[in-house]
Design a protein around this nucleic acid. Structure first.
Lengths: 117, 117
DNA sequence: TTGACATATACCGATATCGGTATATGATGG
DNA sequence: CCATCATATACCGATATCGGTATATGTCAA
């Protein structure tokens, strides 16, 4: 066995900083490849290759427009990432910390009541 | 030039499904390595290696306890992922879609007012 | 139809990464 | 101290991945 294929899902597509950059640019609207090349300062083939990966996980979609190909964001593909990481929000969110504190307090109270019975 | 180092940040640490699994288990509380080995059905060295990556990005912390090493989650390391992906929530959230619709309507109204003047 | 433009693909070399196996390290109990 | 348990590291082979360069494909304009 060997290395697992990594570009097959959104998590891996987004693990590459350049690809996150591409998505960030596309968040501003549909763009031809050349715009991305200039925005990222990468060589054109590299950009096309990153776009392919993003296409394969559904994070971008293409549309032909004359000799250009216009790429646009499909953020929906990122939802699984959001859903997963949201479960950990508790770890840093003050709101959740306060909620946890309240719950802990309630639990303590519950225990005391239990002892009394 | 060659492949960029990938395990250096949280995005890459979490791109590996096994590592997400490890975090998911640790979300239930501190665990020794052996528990993770059994929970994931992986060989022990593999688990130790994944834990090392997670440690290096700060997603887990260790504590010595006799001959065991207890790992615990540090979800704070995942905040950058959450922050980044949250910017795309607009793409799938119905709430945001409705907000966008309202904003578009306001904009139209604004334009009409402008035409009148 | 030819030449310029826009993009995708093929190929290359370097290396990071994964799982697997063997071994080192380190603590505990007898 | 020795055997055992718990974990980490070293090494290996396979391969995926990245950037770079060259080239193919496809579209438009003169």
């Amino acid at each position: 066995m060997a290395r697992a294929a990594t570009t097959a899902d959104a998590f891996n597509a987004v693990a590459e900083p350049r690809r996150r950059q591409i998505l960030d640019v596309l968040a501003g609207g549909e763009r031809p490849v050349n715009d991305l090349v200039h925005a990222l300062g990468l060589a054109q083939p590299q950009v096309s290759k990153h776009l392919r990966v993003l296409r394969e996980v559904g994070a971008v979609e293409v549309r032909d427009h004359g000799r250009q190909r216009l790429y646009r964001l499909n953020g929906h593909a990122l939802k699984p990432i959001h859903d997963w990481v949201k479960g950990y929000e508790r770890s840093w969110s003050e709101r959740f910390e306060q909620l946890d504190a309240v719950l802990a307090e309630l639990e303590q109270k519950e225990e005391r009541d239990g002892d009394d019975e």
